[in-house]
Amino acid sequence: MASNNPHIGSGELRPSPLLGVDDPPPFQIINPAGASSFLIVCDHAGKLIPRRLGSLGLGPEELGRHIAWDLGAAELSVMLSKALDATLIRQTYSRLVIDCNRDPSAPDAMAPVSDGTIIPGNQDLSAEDRAARVESIHEPYHSAIASALGEKTIVAIHSFTPEMNGVVRPWKIGILHHLGNTGFAMSVLAELGRMTTQPVGDNEPYAMDGIDYTVPRHAYPAELPYLEIEVRQDILLTPEGRARISALLQTVLQKCKP
């Protein structure tokens, strides 16, 4: 299912135990010939569900919430890809089908409950059910990242809710880092602190730790520079907000480029 658009592709995909011929590929590659030394990834860009899984037992309202995808992250990642002339690989399917930023063996990789919402289609999954999701969605996405990465710097784009469990989150941008080559992430964190008066989270509202999967899998082993960016979702709900954040991140990433 490759696109006729030279700036968009899906790679060569093998037959899938879950995805039918009418289902989109599990990932999309935008600007595959991008000249930038950055590789942008968006683990939670999409909210589609394979036809064979129906709606996972959820209604449209639940499937539009943050539990299903990172609101605004897909649009922001496309804007950055264009501004930086960087290749972007983004996930097509909802994190409720399988979370591509989790180890596939983790309990919340196919969460039975998310932010208080029971996911009927994720209850009592068999080993075969789980394996089909890994083989059809998780592994092709990560194989595409591995094929495109080389010596590039991985930039992972996410978004977060303004409030969680009754706690207001003041940060507008968060920079996540942990092990491996953290120099680039720390430079971006410092530069954002100089360029904006808004609170910038240092491993806030989430800390990169054993929960994250994409950056540890692809950046840590070869000591590649990396960056995981979290942007508060209310900022990304309008074109103007996305444009402001994209322009800010473009400037900072180019200035701090390894």
Rank of each mutant, 00 (worst) to 15 (best):
72 G>E: 05
65 R>D: 01
79 M>P: 09
69 W>T: 00
70 D>A: 01
83 A>F: 12
77 S>Y: 03
73 A>E: 03
75 E>M: 10
89 I>V: 07
74 A>M: 11
73 A>R: 05
91 Q>A: 12
84 L>H: 09
76 L>E: 10
77 S>V: 04
88 L>N: 00
85 D>R: 03
74 A>Y: 08
93 Y>A: 13
86 A>P: 01
81 S>D: 02
87 T>V: 11
86 A>K: 00
64 G>T: 11
67 I>Q: 07
66 H>A: 06
79 M>H: 13
84 L>M: 08
64 G>I: 09
65 R>P: 01
93 Y>W: 14
86 A>Q: 06
68 A>G: 04
63 L>H: 00
76 L>G: 06
83 A>R: 15
94 S>W: 12
87 T>N: 03
67 I>A: 03
62 E>A: 14
84 L>V: 09
85 D>K: 07
80 L>A: 06
82 K>L: 14
62 E>L: 13
63 L>R: 11
92 T>K: 13
91 Q>P: 08
61 E>I: 15
72 G>C: 07
61 E>W: 14
73 A>P: 04
61 E>M: 13
82 K>T: 15
76 L>D: 04
62 E>N: 12
75 E>N: 10
62 E>C: 09
77 S>A: 11
92 T>V: 15
69 W>V: 11
64 G>S: 13
81 S>W: 03
61 E>D: 15
91 Q>R: 12
73 A>D: 00
93 Y>C: 12
69 W>G: 00
74 A>I: 05
90 R>N: 09
84 L>F: 08
61 E>C: 11
74 A>D: 13
67 I>N: 07
74 A>P: 11
68 A>R: 02
66 H>P: 01
64 G>K: 10
66 H>D: 04
83 A>H: 14
72 G>D: 07
61 E>K: 15
93 Y>N: 11
80 L>G: 03
74 A>S: 13
75 E>K: 06
80 L>C: 02
78 V>A: 03
73 A>K: 02
61 E>L: 15
82 K>Y: 12
78 V>C: 09
86 A>N: 08
89 I>K: 06
70 D>S: 10
92 T>I: 13
65 R>A: 10
82 K>F: 11
80 L>D: 10
76 L>N: 09
93 Y>E: 14
91 Q>I: 06
84 L>S: 04
90 R>L: 15
94 S>F: 12
82 K>C: 11
83 A>M: 14
66 H>S: 02
94 S>T: 13
93 Y>P: 05
82 K>Q: 15
92 T>H: 14
69 W>N: 05
71 L>P: 02
93 Y>M: 13
75 E>W: 04
94 S>G: 05
92 T>C: 15
83 A>Y: 14
91 Q>E: 09
84 L>W: 10
90 R>Q: 14
83 A>N: 14
72 G>P: 05
91 Q>G: 11
71 L>F: 05
67 I>D: 10
89 I>W: 06
61 E>V: 15
93 Y>G: 08
90 R>G: 04
80 L>T: 04
88 L>Q: 00
91 Q>K: 02
71 L>N: 00
84 L>P: 07
86 A>I: 04
66 H>W: 03
63 L>Q: 12
70 D>F: 02
93 Y>D: 13
